[in-house]
Simulated scan of single mutants.
Amino acid sequence: MTRHRTATLALRGLGLLAASALTLWTAKLLRVKRGVGRARRYWSNPQGEPGGLLYVALGDSTAQGVGASRPERGYVGLVAQQMREQTHAAVQVVNLSRSGARIDDVLSDQLPRLAALRPDLVTVGIGGNDLLTYDPAAYVRQVSALTAALPPGTVVADAPYLMHGHWERDAERAADLLTRSAEGHGLVVVPLHDALRREGWSAMATQFAADFFHPNDRGHRVWAEAFWSGILQSPVATRLGPAPAHG
């Protein structure tokens, strides 16, 4: 076989490999997009068992579980499962979050619905969409309004880690702003930004869905662990009891 023939076959093989990879990535990306509707339908009704602890989640698509293989494998579903295992009690989840939501949407749409409920735990994961078009002055106003309106003891994440460029600089400032405002209103802050930063750059390959924006199953577990640490500092912790023994 000539050298030219060998090179041609090698290039053709690389082309086929690249085409296969692109096809696989496209299929995964479509699955993430379909997951938005799937999560919305799943959370359109309360999930879990009534008569025990009531957990209400506010936020955006991450609270919906978009990016996970199933909605209940998002961080909200994982937190609910952790509550069941910790308390051996029934846990019902009312997930008021919405994909694409911003802070203003929580204020105008989600908080009024929360007012009709008597939850044992409220978590909030919001702000990622606001950071895409970050306006510092507007963010301060929105965060101030949000933290003033949330019930005391609400567990609220500061801001996601956006890894690079001005997006990360904005996210770091946003995390600090939300933390200071939330603590001033008696809220429990989840240092999500630092938790995600500790995962490092390798997380881009292992903890994100195909759109490189939403966490995948592994990424949602990291979010859930960060939220759980905050929950253990919240008023609901008194009803959780000691951690179950293992081994």
Rank of each mutant, 00 (worst) to 15 (best):
R141D: 15
V106H: 07
A210Q: 05
A27T: 10
Q86S: 12
E172I: 06
H185N: 15
A27D: 08
R38L: 13
P46I: 04
T238S: 15
N129A: 01
Y75A: 04
M1I: 15
R239T: 14
A39F: 08
Y42S: 02
S229T: 11
G230N: 10
T87P: 15
L17T: 13
P235Y: 08
V32Y: 06
N45K: 09
L117A: 07
D158W: 11
L58G: 11
V93Y: 05
L9D: 09
A175D: 08
D194R: 14
A138N: 03
L114S: 01
A7D: 07
A182Y: 03
Y161W: 15
T123S: 14
T62N: 06
P46Q: 01
A159Q: 13
H214L: 01
V155W: 00
T8D: 08
G77K: 02
R70M: 11
M163S: 10
A39K: 00
G165E: 01
R34V: 03
D105S: 07
K28T: 05
I231D: 11
A116R: 07
L30I: 11
L232Q: 15
D120K: 02
T2G: 14
T133N: 03
G125M: 04
G65L: 03
E183T: 13
E183M: 13
P119G: 07
G128W: 00
W25D: 12
R141H: 13
E225M: 09
L53F: 15
R141F: 08
N95C: 04
R34A: 13
P151C: 00
A157D: 02
A10V: 15
P235I: 09
A148P: 08
L192V: 12
G241Q: 00
G200M: 05
A21D: 06
R70H: 14
N129D: 05
A63V: 05
Y134D: 00
A157R: 02
L58Q: 06
S61T: 06
I231C: 10
N45F: 05
V66H: 02
M83C: 13
R41A: 14
L53E: 06
A174T: 04
W25R: 10
G153I: 03
D217M: 08
A137E: 14
G15R: 00
G184L: 04
P235W: 11
A145T: 06
L54Y: 01
Y161P: 06
A27C: 10
T26Y: 09
G74L: 09
M163K: 03
A27R: 09
